[in-house]
Write a protein that binds this DNA or RNA. Structure first.
Lengths: 63, 63
DNA sequence: GCAATATGACAAATACACTTTACATCGAGA
DNA sequence: TCTCGATGTAAAGTGTATTTGTCATATTGC
């Protein structure tokens, strides 16, 4: 899975910590997901979509 | 997370095993997800959406 | 009644998601 | 230069997703 987190974050000028706070996860989790070290759980993916007010399919892409 | 797997499966008259085969996971995984014992990983959620030719948001619902 | 199929569930094992703590690097600004 | 915020990564620990194997039950066809 690839993802557009870095871009979406940049569009809002949020740091990884800002996003982590909104998602209620650690900054390291955001970093790991963003750099592709692992994929989020489905509930976290939904939360990410909520925070960016879009669809999961618009953020995460089959690779 | 709630999900509409049972209904989608019924619409196609697929057994849990049929779906498991298409998803390339065990029947126990399909059963556990369907009965809400756990949520699928994000890659598996994408595969499920593919198999049913729809969106993740159309199958899995925030609860 | 019997075999076969479908479903639900549990246990043990492995893999992965996520946390906390910690350290290193880089760029911007005083 | 010194500091500070932002980022990348690593180790160790906890929890969850998924597997294989197994059992119980219900339903259907012969």
């Amino acid at each position: 899975m690839k993802n557009r987190l870095k871009v979406l974050r940049a569009e809002r000028d949020w740091s990884q910590q800002d996003l982590a706070d909104r998602l209620e996860v650690s900054r390291q989790s955001v970093n790991a997901i963003e750099t592709g070290r692992y994929d989020p759980s489905l509930p976290l993916a939904f939360k990410i979509a909520d925070v960016f007010e879009t669809q999961i399919e618009d953020i995460f892409l089959r690779d």
